[in-house]
Simulated scan of single mutants.
Amino acid sequence: MKILSIQSGIFGDHSNSTQLVKQVVDKLSREAENVIVTERDLSTQPLPYFDAEVAMALNSDAPNRTAAQQKIVALSDLLIEEVKEADAIVLGLPMYNFGIPAQMKSWFDLLARAGVTFTYTEQGPKGLLADKPVYVVAARGGVHQGQPSDSQTPFIRTILGFIGLQDVRIVYVEGLNMGDSAKAESLSKFETELVEFA
């Protein structure tokens, strides 16, 4: 079994989301044989932001690409291949200022490639990646599940579905900055839900 672990907490191993992702990966690893885990930490391995240069590179014809564009496309190809090869994906999703981390947005921008991971049809867009479980750990300092302040999880479901990944399983770990008691209760709830979640 191949697991792709995507971490985006800006505090590395001290990020709640990073620690929770490791628990999910450990749980999945215990229930399978010959597990190979690919880890990508988007904070320590930053990706280029989606700007005009990146957009032109991803939409250019191979024979006409500059050296800089070839480098961008090669990176995008690598990220897409990691997703294709994985049997399951685990995403650590901290909330910063009500949105997804900028570095995770860059990851999605490099994954969404017309003709590679999605295409447009007369019926609308169609994802081209084979579906697989995507475990999303939504770690928040406050409480946002089901509230207008949660712009994250609708976006995550939309962008993943856009490229073909429909089996999205989200667990919410909230109130982590609302005092020791609230944090302990949330983490305890997560450990209980982990049995069913993963």
Results as ranks from 00 to 15, higher is better:
169 R>Y: 02
25 V>A: 13
89 I>W: 12
104 M>I: 13
25 V>Q: 14
153 T>S: 04
176 L>T: 05
131 D>G: 03
98 F>G: 08
65 R>G: 12
146 G>P: 12
43 S>D: 08
111 L>N: 02
100 I>R: 00
94 P>N: 10
115 G>V: 07
65 R>H: 14
159 I>A: 01
90 V>N: 07
18 T>R: 08
166 Q>N: 06
183 K>W: 05
55 A>D: 04
61 D>V: 14
87 D>C: 10
75 L>N: 11
47 L>Y: 13
159 I>N: 00
130 A>T: 02
171 V>M: 00
4 L>R: 08
141 G>F: 10
27 K>Y: 11
58 L>I: 09
53 E>G: 01
144 H>L: 11
124 G>Q: 08
151 S>H: 11
53 E>I: 03
33 E>D: 11
192 T>C: 10
69 Q>F: 14
147 Q>C: 00
41 D>W: 10
7 Q>K: 12
146 G>W: 13
22 K>H: 15
83 V>A: 07
183 K>Y: 10
13 D>E: 09
72 I>H: 06
152 Q>V: 11
182 A>Y: 03
30 R>P: 08
185 E>A: 14
117 T>P: 02
154 P>N: 02
88 A>T: 12
78 L>V: 12
152 Q>K: 02
72 I>C: 04
66 T>Q: 08
56 M>D: 02
59 N>S: 15
107 W>V: 10
160 L>D: 01
37 V>K: 07
124 G>N: 11
96 Y>C: 09
134 V>K: 00
174 E>G: 04
50 F>K: 01
180 D>W: 12
161 G>T: 02
198 A>E: 06
154 P>G: 00
169 R>A: 00
195 V>C: 05
167 D>S: 07
44 T>K: 13
195 V>S: 13
126 K>Y: 05
68 A>H: 13
30 R>F: 13
113 R>G: 02
64 N>R: 15
103 Q>R: 12
154 P>Q: 01
79 L>P: 11
66 T>A: 06
85 E>I: 05
